[in-house]
Amino acid sequence: MSGQNPLKKMMNNIPVPQQKLKEVLRVEGLTKVFDKSSQPIQALRQVDLTLYEGEMVAIMGTSGSGKSTLLHMLSAIDAPTSGKMFVFGEQRDVHLEPQATIFRRNHIGFVFQSFELLEDLNVMDNIAMPLILKGLTNKEIEILVKEALDQVGMKKWRTHLPTELSGGQQQRVAIARALIAKPSILLADEPTGALDFNTTNDILHLLVQLNKELQQTMVIVTHDAYVATFADRVLFFHDGQIVDVYTNKKDESDLEEILEKFKYIARGEQ
């Protein structure tokens, strides 16, 4: 007998104490000005943002809104003009080398729209790359790669080359590679941009599954409202700032709400 019997109802009403959310990455007053041309461009204007452990955040914005620049700041690929960054609550200056590379290696996992797998290496070796760079032993690498292959369902294809795989399969490999070193944050830039609808669905479901199972913090940059519905919350970027936020209710109304908000900023009215 399933459903809500009185005993179950009563038990479900027992309040569960809320755990304090652990802060993974925080930026305060993040500003980026590109000074190359005659007209300086304010790509980011005083952006404040906190990422908590285990959450999946979608960042939506039109091109030129600053979302890609934000990604570069978060991953220390580029340095901000001003602003502070806190890693697990501690202020860090991660934008100068060699700290930047070390930071990326230890804390960031990337997934790109174009997969960016190494064409000459097979699936296993592509996935192993981050661990080789970290200097793990062959035995350790073997165990972790095996686990990663299972997680993304690519065990059967482990000796294949990227050219022998479909887009969706390549992205699975890319995800495995991004997660194998257990990064603090997975950054995905339009991860389903090059995929058809069904494959997009598969990949998004995989990301959600991994997010929940591994409590893996994820940031997905997208211009696709449907993709954003898979996240816990959505941040809307426009003209270098976060102009709106939406927390997904995980029901049918999410897509409509997100589309509305996106259209609003796309029209440039915010």
Binding site: M11, N12, I14, V16, P17, E213, L214, Q215
Partner: peptide, 12 residues
């Protein structure tokens, strides 16, 4: 992470 799913029910 294994506990994740079970947490609330276990607590209650």
């Amino acid at each position: 992470s294994l506990l994740n799913k079970e947490q609330d029910k276990l607590y209650r």
